[in-house]
Structures are given as structure tokens and as C-alpha cells.
């Protein structure tokens, strides 16, 4: 089972498939980056190359984006990215599958300073600073950001957005 973004319909940290609302939240959150992507942006769904099961789940998550998620003037599309390939992936954000979670620190290190937003569902990764953001769409939208991880990633958010989310 993929961890995927936010805690989904369960408390943050529980693993489950993303709901359409979770993906909407993810896409809309990109609009509050200091330099938000415009037009079409890609989100890398990250999985370890050696795991066929992980690729299967990454593929399933990518499929849940459909033709792309529209958030205002932005259309967000998925791209499958291996853990080993994150450093060169032309994406605005990286969404970690559950299988990629053990590699979170390495992924963060690979994209440090490149303004790539790393997202996962495991709340412990926020507490440890291994990813920048955790989002959840239901039953109540929750967005957690690790400030240190954001700084290391070269990520800044709009001030109003920061005042409405939880930071660590």
C-alpha cells in the first residue's frame, strides 16, 4: 500500500490511497508557493526502482490524477519517478509512495535547494524533517509543513498560506 500524500481519511500518518480531494489539496497547495508553477506542472510519484509492487502502486496513484488536476490556472499531471532519478526529474513536487518513505532523507538531499516540494503521508516524516509537506483532504483539510525542511529544499510559501497551516 502506498503511503502517498496526506493522511487521507484517517489521522495524519496512516497510509491509504489518496482520495480525489487529497490530490486537489496537493494541487492547490502548489499555488501558494512563493514562485508558483503556472500552466502545466508535473508531480513526480516516487517509488524505489527495485520494487515491482511499488511501481504498481505508483502507477495506480498516477492514474488517479486522470487527465490532470486543475487548480485555478494550474493543471497538475503525474510523472513516475524512481528514487534514483529524483535529482534530475523536471517536476514541481515529489509525492513519496510508502515504499519510498525509507528513502525520504536521501530524496530530500538529492533535491535540496532546487525548490522541489517533497510530500508524503507519514506524519513522522514531517516531525523528522525528511519531507516538506503532508496534506490531507478529508474529513478536514490539514496541511503540515516542516520549516527546516522547506528551507533546505529552497521552498517558501505565501504568508497568508503559512498562517493557515500547521508548521513544525
Amino acid at each position: 500500500m502506498l503511503a502517498l500524500l496526506a493522511g487521507l481519511a484517517l489521522p495524519l500518518g496512516a497510509a491509504a490511497d489518496p482520495t480525489p480531494r487529497d490530490l486537489q489539496v496537493l494541487a492547490r497547495a502548489l499555488g501558494f508557493l512563493e514562485r508558483p508553477p503556472a500552466g502545466t506542472a508535473e508531480v513526480g510519484v516516487v517509488y524505489p526502482q527495485q520494487s515491482a509492487a511499488a511501481r504498481e502502486e505508483a502507477t495506480r496513484i498516477a492514474a488517479s490524477f486522470g487527465e490532470g488536476i486543475r487548480a485555478g490556472n494550474l493543471v497538475v499531471r503525474p510523472r513516475l519517478v524512481t528514487v534514483e532519478g529524483v535529482a534530475s526529474a523536471p517536476v514541481a513536487a515529489l509525492l513519496l509512495t510508502e515504499a519510498a518513505v525509507p528513502h525520504a532523507a536521501a530524496i530530500a538531499g538529492a533535491v535540496a535547494g532546487r525548490s522541489v516540494l517533497t510530500i508524503a503521508s507519514d506524519r513522522s516524516l514531517i516531525d523528522s524533517g525528511s519531507v516538506v509537506m503532508v496534506v490531507r483532504g478529508e474529513p478536514r483539510v490539514e496541511i503540515l509543513v516542516n520549516r527546516t525542511a522547506a528551507q533546505a529544499a529552497g521552498i517558501n510559501f505565501a504568508a497568508a498560506f503559512r498562517m493557515m497551516i500547521q508548521e513544525r
Binding site: V25, R28, F32, A71, V141, A158, A159, M164
Partner: peptide, 26 residues
């Protein structure tokens, strides 16, 4: 900085109205 207070975008993100009338902060 960023893009001002785009209430529409914030409301679509959080799925509920956004206000500054309670405390002054969004």
C-alpha cells in the same frame, strides 16, 4: 513576496470560507 490574499484560492484549498474579521490574520 507572494500573491496577496486570494480568498478564492484559499477557500478552494481549504473547502471552507476564509476570513480576517475575527483576529486580523487570515
Amino acid at each position: 513576496g507572494a500573491q496577496g490574499l486570494d480568498r478564492n484560492a484559499l477557500e478552494e484549498l481549504f473547502g471552507e470560507p476564509v476570513t480576517t474579521s475575527a483576529t486580523g490574520k487570515p
